[in-house]
Design a protein around this nucleic acid. Structure first.
Lengths: 210, 210
DNA sequence: TAGATTGTTAATCGATTAACAATC
DNA sequence: TAGATTGTTAATCGATTAACAATC
């Protein structure tokens, strides 16, 4: 399975396929055609077939796709065949919210520790995971094979964290701070820019009003 | 300013322009050319000029763009010239995190109330905003000219909230539940699908490893 | 077998980039 | 004025959709 030259647009649709297939699986739906799936998921049948064929022929002419097989295949493509060690930096409300999401854990994203600079938070246990002093960050991350860091600090703290991360073997950052991190190494960065998203809401709202 | 037939791709870049221009403004940068901005923001100069010209000629040949003017113009395009009344449904960690973000407030998104079904949360005050019983939702929303609802419930509660919303004049939903809401009316829905985003992280991580 | 539906190629559409005349 | 940089048109590139032969 050589995932070469797959466009980002395709990749970003994969989790949605995964989500819908899981739902069908839970509802005991055994097979699905691109046409039926199209109706549910809102992509064209043609696009669905194109998307899936980037990774291999998972379907069968005249039949469609086996839901369970396709679900598993997409899981594999998304890297859900193993666990990932994770830490959260920033143990405020958002960090705590993420620490409490059991769905991340179920998918294999295993939270090993949280970090903060605030003495009031250090020592707390959130969902059985301890909040450590940020001083311990680099050592902990190196000693525990941490691969992904969720950055839940304020805007101002985020770049510092990114700089520290680049001195460790951490492979990926999931960034919630409203800033584009400057990264020299090949660390993967995926951003959740909440404000950017909220501003599109007001944009569309404004359009509706006119 | 008739924002007609502007593609969504353009719209989703606008908040990033807004963010960078704010930063320049804070750093007393008075003017910027598309070429310089390109270097900072990572879009091509050509794309920047194309994007901006969808909304009007904000620049000046031989000079570039006035940072403050452009910042204000983009703010206007994004609908940041007035306040929006907001409520949050779901007063758990995530709801509380959003309630505490002062940046939303500063941009004009004014949180008027929170709602939950959990008796332990009802009556609490988060950042001076009270958590009400979900029973009061419809009445409150109608009586207080609420335009945007942030849905921070679990997956299972979200569609119920969406159904309730459709019985009110609420115009837009910012949805954090991992589900695609079924909406019959023309309510705007903007999703933050955290899991979908996290799965792209594991996808790219997997690609790196190979 | 006949019907259904995929896999895949070709056509279309839209978005990005390049180029340059207009003009500050 | 000369240099710089926009606004805008044209060219290119990539993504989506349509079509249909292959085949289960």
């Amino acid at each position: 399975m050589k995932d070469k030259n797959i466009s980002v647009a395709v990749i970003r649709r994969l989790p949605k396929y995964h989500r819908y297939l899981k739902e069908m699986l839970d509802n005991d739906i055994k097979r699905i055609s691109s046409k039926e799936l199209s109706k549910m998921i809102g992509f064209t049948a043609s696009q669905i077939r194109q998307d899936l064929n980037n990774f291999g022929g998972f379907g069968q002419q005249g039949y469609g796709y086996n839901v369970e097989d396709l679900y598993n295949e997409i899981g594999k493509i998304l890297g859900l065949t193993r666990n990932y060690n994770v830490v959260i930096v920033g143990a405020g409300n958002l960090g705590q919210a993420l620490a409490n999401y059991s769905s991340f854990d179920k998918l294999g994203f295993k939270l090993k520790a949280m970090f903060d600079v605030n003495p009031k938070l250090i020592g707390l246990k959130i969902n059985n995971v301890e909040v450590h002093d940020m001083d311990k960050f680099e050592d902990f991350v190196k000693a525990n094979d941490i691969e992904i860091v969720y950055i839940c600090t304020s805007r101002d703290g985020a770049q510092d964290v990114a700089d520290k991360i680049q001195k460790t073997p951490v492979e990926a950052i999931w960034n919630f701070a409203p800033i584009d991190l400057k990264i020299k190494s090949d660390v993967i960065v995926e951003n959740i820019h909440l404000i950017d998203n909220l501003l599109t809401v007001s944009y569309f709202l404004k359009g509706k009003m006119e």
